[in-house]
Design a protein around this nucleic acid. Sequence first.
DNA 1: AGTAACCTACCTACTAGTAGGATGTGCGCC
DNA 2: GGCGCACATCCTACTAGTAGGTAGGTTACT
Lengths: 192, 192
Amino acid sequence: MPTTDTKTAIMDAAQELMQRGGANAMSYQHISDAIGIRKASIHHHFPTKEHLIEAVIQRYATYFLGIVDGIVESKLDPVDKLRKYAGLFEATLCEGKQDKACLCGMLGAELATLGSSAAAGIRHFYRDNEARLARILEEGREKGAFHFKGDTKLVAAMIFSLLEGGALVVRAEGGHKRLHTMVEQTIKLLQR
Amino acid sequence: MPTTDTKTAIMDAAQELMQRGGANAMSYQHISDAIGIRKASIHHHFPTKEHLIEAVIQRYATYFLGIVDGIVESKLDPVDKLRKYAGLFEATLCEGKQDKACLCGMLGAELATLGSSAAAGIRHFYRDNEARLARILEEGREKGAFHFKGDTKLVAAMIFSLLEGGALVVRAEGGHKRLHTMVEQTIKLLQR
DNA sequence: AGTAACCTACCTACTAGTAGGATGTGCGCC
DNA sequence: GGCGCACATCCTACTAGTAGGTAGGTTACT
């Protein structure tokens, strides 16, 4: 299936570029150079840049949330579920040539310059992730693994922001190891 | 002093554009349109875009950290210091036509596409903010306002990432009010 | 006279996107 | 089986618009 392969290659290159420098730093020419296909051919698969961005967000969200659901529904200890969830963000930073952040964190910064349906996709991604995190925290509280005051959903939103922000911030200094220590510190706050 | 005024107006417009859509969404033409000056005249004050970005980062960092130092050295209760510090991020979201995030949070996403000295300025900003936060937390711990396990510096890094990430994430949904509730929730975790 | 500020007019490079042609590849039809 | 049609893929070659940046002139203040 050479059709799908090219389309996938385009999306892979686009995603890589966006995770490293944002949507505005990704151009059809860059993709063209990266995978050895003519610029016009990319337009054949994705008529406009907005279509391409939308498709990449969609694919990313589906893939990411699929893994997250696997973690949520696993038999792991809630604390380890949280560790594994945070590990997804840490792993992204190590991937490939390094310094890739979460796609939707990157695009969150450029939200105002994005099309409305791309923005909607990102909003959805945020909501879905916070909901999953809330489930992990809820379960952890019930089982006595977490002890904290306040609303589970708020703590979920807090941790999500911390991970998205952390993935961006630690690229300046410390990298994935630093993000990891921040996650462990956060878990300490939730346990006592 | 008409000289300084124009220079300031350019920096103001540039900062506004960057806080809303990032450095790549800011162009000399946009600034030109915004403040009614010719594109070439901007080059008279800031020869290259990199110079402009650097200058804006520098000014922002100095201004922001000045306020932060005022908070750190004030006679406020440590918990209120933290509230006031977080309030700076919340206030940015409300400013002007709304949905402006912290400049250095925005540029953190585009770090890879920035010049080396702009990147150094951002790194510095992160470090300085975390250091100030750590002082607030340390003081709070000594005075018995905060009770948490683990390293103060790590918690500082955690809160900073939370605020930078939160400022980006809540623009998609909830806005400054949502960030505020997240901050209050975080304080709860530190007090128990 | 010198200089800072600002202008018009221009340059090159790159952006997203289009037109239209070449090459295939599968499918019904005789 | 061979023929031709339709469609997908990918190409070369182009467009208009915008990016950052420059050359060189005008104005005005010191």
